[in-house]
Design a protein around this nucleic acid. Sequence first.
DNA 1: GTGATAGCCATCATGTTGGA
DNA 2: TCCAACATGATGGCTATCAC
Length: 206
Amino acid sequence: MKLQNKQLCQTRQEKIMYALDKLECMSRSQLQSLFQLKSVRNANRVLYNMSPFLNHKRLHENVYYLSKKGRQHIGSEKNKPHLTQLEHKVRRNDIYLYYGCPKDWKVERPNEWRIQGETSKLISDARFSLHGVICFVEVDLKQKMLENKKKIKLYHSLFQALGQQQALLIFYTTTSVRKERILSWCQEYKVNAEILTIEDFENYFL
DNA sequence: GTGATAGCCATCATGTTGGA
DNA sequence: TCCAACATGATGGCTATCAC
């Protein structure tokens, strides 16, 4: 059993590393929730024990990402994530966990389509499928509302180009005021959307 | 100043060992 | 084979320290 425990521990460490490789970074509470690390104290200890493989940066709580050694350990070919948008990435992970960790979750995937002879491009923060519906994720933390409106317009065009394929825009924003605004634009442009705010996630983890 | 993290110690669960 | 004693690792509680 001791050997088994050690193997289980190693397996859990590797799973954590693969998750961090996939999502670029995760907050302590996200890791605690995803890997059932029980208490905060225990989660911190587990992550501290992995310190050779992990780096962290403190935001409202520690946000962990793979160190060079960690990336080498799992054979990752990715580079160190940019630390300037950690908060944005952590919020994007909220959506990932909220939708039950979709297997086909892809981040920062460019979308290119042609409609009425005009080519358009859009990089969504993430993309995945849910019961046959293509879901596009947008995280808005500090973005200007005008930019959000432009994006919704682009999604309107993208959804038209998708034709019969069902699509959903999942928009994650900070306040209920912004949520209402975004929702009204989605209705105006007939974009099938779900708008979530930080409050929606407050009681979700743990 | 406040909340998150880490250090230390206690407790619990479970495997190992050795004697009856 | 059974069982008590022991070893070890995971986890929790308390609290000092740290980082924002």
